[in-house]
Design a protein around this nucleic acid. Structure first.
Length: 514
RNA sequence: GUCCCCAUCGUCUAGCCCGGUCCAGGACACCGGCCUUUCACGCCGGCGACGCCGGUUCAAAUCCGGCUGGGGACGCCA
């Protein structure tokens, strides 16, 4: 407790001052922390650094961010690393990196729970002092037996309260449990699901402090959320059954209760909770695969949320339109195809100059370094309509980047398209292209039209052979735009080489067919 | 097993709160067509859903109940 005064415990009334004090001594982000209004919405995203930021977590973060932004509130990032065994610095970095890439910038934090243990202990001690919590000496095995017993009796598995009235003091192997109410109901209002009430008999005296002297999740979240002034807890509905416990803690600690909003979860195609089994679920993996942050956000927000019939949104539109009223209640299935489509649509909207660097990097990763900025910028617009991801774009840009002698020609294709007659045409055309003054699309088209008329053939006949010569593939962007971007040198060199290759491999077939 | 949450096309959803305008609208995917130098893009069209049973009502996707189905939680994980 950085700024805590010596006298131990915290009257609730001191909390405001404590917060004020924190702000002074730790100006995480001084600019936004000032001039805060009383009703300001404060949300948070509390990832546990035990893995990469995955799709599900990203959506939770996104929703919290959007909600805060929409209401001009504050979005706090808190790293829940109380599980020192499974938490790691690498994962923390990875999560921050993913958040940053998605553009989900936080106003405060990141706070680390591992640096706040003393705070949690003060609150636990206070509960102990007030008789709202107690020491328990039951071993994990004994508790397990109690659960088993309850299960067998057709009841909800829970701790039976053996130590509740024993008045035990601290000791090795002892945990601290909350003295939860034995009857009545715990009721709370959910911004999305409406009112929820749970019979207190369903709840048990859950652990607040473990035998190893570390605080548990439920205790730490409540203390942090309350002290950080978080007033809107927006999270996955897998937390619904935790909520009554936390409400109990808010009450016991005399904290003001926040609003809860439980959003439906994202399911895999098998309708099971999203997990590693479902493939690449890490946000950074999507980045690597060529998805755009704006598109991912667009897709993610549409999972459970909608605004009329609109499918595509800019970041600004989302901030403007996002409300919890239009949030659905039921779980939804993650659909890769739709994401691809959304990504494709976003991709087409981006100015080519913004994509050029990305394309160059991805080409370089494929061992094709020979594409400069200007060339890349010309390639991009040809590929934008044909790509759903940046990787697809790079994939299709390969022939632009390859050296002429590296363009692979499939002998079968050469045989099929480079007949003797066609070769004659192509040789003729090659000469004309070499002499063409202005190597622009328009000039090429004009030249071609003349040529076709002269030879009295249809464009269809020579289009595919040319395409194969230039790209090595049977699918590519339009011929003229491709030639213009490739430039005269590459275009003519490739035609020449294809002709030569066809001479070698296609000979027999060509002569045989004549 | 117990508790909680949820329920419109294969998927994401609009409509449901404030019953009639819904023989249910949009999007992805799929199928067909148009455009066309290939592949895409784009455009047009098609396929396709109110889980079931009761109740309330002149009238129910919309309100109520039950059932079924799906999901989640039941940790000294978060």
């Amino acid at each position: 407790m950085e700024c805590h005064s010596k006298d131990s415990w915290p009257k609730r009334s001191q909390i405001k001052e404590r917060n004020a004090c924190r702000k002074k001594s730790k100006p995480w982000k001084a600019s936004t922390s000032t001039g805060v209004s009383m009703n300001e919405i404060v949300t948070r995203f509390p990832p546990s650094p035990t893995g990469h930021l995955h799709i599900g977590g990203a959506r939770t973060a996104l929703l919290n961010w959007l909600y805060a932004r929409h209401h001009q509130g504050k979005f706090i990032l808190r790293i829940e690393d109380t599980d020192t065994e499974r938490s790691s610095r690498e994962m923390t970095d990875s999560i921050l990196q993913a958040m940053d890439w998605l553009g989900l910038h936080w106003d405060e934090g990141p706070y680390f729970q591992s640096t706040r243990f003393e705070l949690y202990h003060q609150h636990i001690d206070w509960l102990l002092e007030k008789g709202l919590a107690y020491y328990c000496s039951c071993t994990p095995d004994e508790v397990e037996a109690m659960r088993q017993k309850a299960w067998n009796a057709g009841e909800k598995p829970k701790y039976d309260g053996s130590c509740r009235e024993l008045g035990l003091g601290p000791g090795p192997g002892r945990v601290v449990r909350l003295k939860a109410p034995l009857s009545g109901q715990t009721v709370y209002q959910d911004l999305i699901k409406g009112q929820n009430a749970v019979d207190n008999r369903e709840l048990d005296d859950f652990v607040l402090r473990r035998a190893d002297n570390t605080p548990t999740y439920n205790l730490a979240v409540v203390v942090d959320d309350a002290l950080m002034g978080i007033n809107t807890i927006l999270r996955g509905d897998d937390h619904i059954s935790n909520t009554p416990k936390q409400v109990l803690l808010y009450q016991a600690l005399q904290f003001e209760r926040p609003s809860f909003a439980h959003v439906p979860m994202i399911l895999g195609p098998d309708k099971k909770r999203l997990s590693k089994r479902h493939g690449a679920m890490s946000v950074l993996e999507y980045k690597a695969r060529g998805y755009l942050p704006g598109a991912l956000i667009n897709y993610l927000v549409r999972l459970g949320w909608s605004s009329g019939d609109q499918e595509l949104f800019t970041r600004e539109e989302l901030i403007e339109k996002f409300t919890l009223n239009s949030m659905g209640k039921s779980a939804c299935v993650f659909n890769q195809e739709k994401l691809d489509w959304v990504n494709g649509r976003h991709l087409k909207q981006i100015p080519p100059s913004d994509l050029a660097a990305e394309l160059r990097t991805r080409l370089r990763n494929r061992g094709l370094p020979g594409v400069d900025e200007a060339y890349a910028e010309k390639i991009v617009p040809l590929l934008q309509p044909r790509s759903q991801t940046l990787e697809q774009m790079a994939e299709q840009a390969v022939f632009f980047a390859q050296e002429t002698e590296d363009i692979p020609y499939d002998p079968e294709m050469l045989d099929k398209f480079f007949t003797t007659e066609l070769k004659q045409y192509l040789r003729d055309l090659l000469g004309r292209l070499e002499r063409l003054q202005d190597f622009s699309q328009a000039a090429q088209e004009e030249l071609l039209a003349e040529f076709l008329q002269e030879k009295d053939i249809k464009f269809k006949r020579i289009a595919q052979p040319i395409r194969i010569a230039l790209t090595g593939k049977k699918a590519s962007p339009g011929l003229f735009e491709t030639m213009e971007v490739l430039g005269r040198d590459r275009t003519t060199a490739r035609l020449r080489r294809a002709l030569t290759q066809a001479e070698g491999s296609g000979k027999q077939t060509a002569s045989a067919s004549t």
